[in-house]
Design a protein around this nucleic acid. Structure first.
Length: 423
RNA sequence: AGAGGGGUGUCCGAGUGGUUUAAGGAGCACGCUUGGAAAGCGUGUGUAGGUCUCAAGCUUACCGAGGGUUCGAAUCCCUUCCCCUCUACCA
């Protein structure tokens, strides 16, 4: 969430940023917000000055009562009783004005970093770099949804029976490959200084608000009926919310956490072509890295996180490219996002396997996540990224490494899988 | 799940309607003292908002959260969350 003091002090920058993110009527909205804030302040002042008088009178009544001057006290009491109505009225009006302002403010996305390219759709994302080369595929190369059947390692029909579409069952070497990837990704993160967290995978409403899923995106999350808890769409939510309402000691920064969790997404309305097999699921596993920084080091951290994700892809020998997302394709809360896409040899297309973002103070403002610098409390910067999400990595590994003697497991994973081929 | 007891500042902890302007202690910071340290002494020590060119000052709110009663609420009432003990259940 953007802060009102920032918007007031940088209204032109705010309007430009919102426009880059394709918010309609950015200028009107910003001016409306400032007007709402003016109104809020004025009402608050009126309420507070009435309260000041009433507080003073109440104190006076107290000392009059103690010294036994009952009649004087009674007189005062009648006087201040009249103030009650005004106070209540002004307080309620101030609260209403604040809520109105807040409701508008939460609908605004984060402002994009200056390096974010203009653009509306995925086609306008900037290709930062491409690594590796197209895998050499045999003529009869099969897409992963055929391979998983051929080797009987991932079963959509069984998932369908026990849960529903988009909930596959991993079996035998399929299950073991999953477990190998999870351990590999966690170990690699720990090697470069991340601290492992195993969070709950259900979260409450406050947490959903803290990282920006709520309000507005509840339709994308599963909810429990009795408690109203949400199944997490990503480990970003619980791991970042660990620091909700926290003033972090400056010496503890930067914080680098990693966690593996299943992720649950309803993906309402996003089914269609290109989502066969493992390309899009309701439940999948992901290893997430989260960092918390002082503002001046956050962009350096974003580059470091991007390099970490790239190192994983290189170790798995996957042909990939890095995109800098354009204003229209970026997430709601992000200031700058890199997407990593791997080449899927049999589908002949790029698959998004990671998204690494700097949220600057956007989440921190919602979370009230601060640190103290020279006695003053300032909002931290939060960052996160997938390192990595499993299903599309599995899809690419299966497709790109298929051969006459089965699917070859990358060297680096063999100690984790305990086998060299799926056949 | 049932019965009972709790939630107060960075921490411990007092506080059952009115100088609470949240006692007292610990911790922390600074100063004095010291050859240095400890002890001792002194001072300071939260968050958010408003006012203000800045600072100081003044002011409002905050005792788990939300609402209510009252001239006045940490204190009384209601709702809710969390913790502890016992019982039941369970992995």
């Amino acid at each position: 969430m953007l802060t009102i003091p920032f918007i007031r002090a940088n209204s032109e920058i705010t309007i430009q940023g919102l426009t880059k993110k394709h918010v309609a009527n950015a200028s009107e909205i910003v001016h409306q917000l400032i007007a709402m804030d003016d109104q809020r302040k004025s009402l608050l002042q009126q309420a507070e000055s009435a309260l000041e008088i009433s507080n003073a009178a109440a104190k006076e009544i107290g000392s009059l009562m103690q010294s036994g001057q009952k009649e004087l006290a009674e007189g005062k009491r009648a006087e201040t009783a009249a103030l009650k109505g005004t106070i209540k009225e002004k307080e309620e009006a101030a609260k209403a004005a604040e809520k109105q302002m807040f409701d508008l403010l939460v609908t605004l996305p984060n402002l994009p970093h200056s390096s974010v390219p203009e653009g509306k759709t995925a086609e306008e994302n900037e290709i930062v770099l491409t690594w590796g080369s197209l895998p050499s595929m045999q003529a009869d190369a099969q897409p992963h949804w055929d391979l998983i059947k051929k080797y009987d390692i991932i079963d959509f029909d069984l998932g369908n029976k026990i849960t529903g579409a988009g909930f596959p069952v991993y079996k035998g070497k399929g299950a073991r490959l999953q477990r190998a990837l999870i351990n590999f990704f966690l170990d690699e993160a720990i090697k470069v200084g991340y601290y492992e967290i195993q969070p709950p995978i259900l979260i409450n409403e406050d947490s959903g608000f803290g990282t920006g899923q709520l309000p507005d995106k509840e339709g994308q999350m599963y909810v429990t009926k009795e408690e109203g808890l949400f199944l997490i769409p990503t480990a970003e939510v619980p791991i970042t919310n660990l620091y909700r309402d926290v003033i972090v000691n400056e010496k503890e920064l930067p914080i680098k956490n990693v966690g593996h969790t299943p992720c649950f997404r309803r993906e309402a309305g996003s089914w269609g072509a290109h989502v066969r097999g493992l390309n899009r699921l309701h439940q999948f596993d992901k290893i997430e890295i989260v960092q918390i920084h002082k503002p001046e080091t956050s962009y350096q951290a974003l580059e470091e996180m991007s390099l970490h994700v790239q190192a994983l892809l290189q170790k798995l020998n996957l042909h990939y490219r890095v995109l800098r997302l354009c204003g229209g394709d970026m997430g709601f809360a992000s200031a700058l996002t890199y997407d990593m896409e791997v080449w899927s040899g049999a589908q002949n297309r790029w698959l998004e396997v990671s998204s690494v973002s700097n949220f600057e103070t956007f989440q921190a403002n919602r979370l009230k996540l601060r640190t103290k610098v020279e006695g003053k409390s300032i909002l931290c910067h939060t960052l996160n990224g997938s390192a990595l999400a499993l299903p599309r990595i599995v899809a690419a590994l299966l497709e790109n490494n298929q051969g006459p003697d089965g699917i070859k497991i990358p060297e680096i994973l063999v100690p984790y899988t305990g086998f060299t081929h799926i056949n």
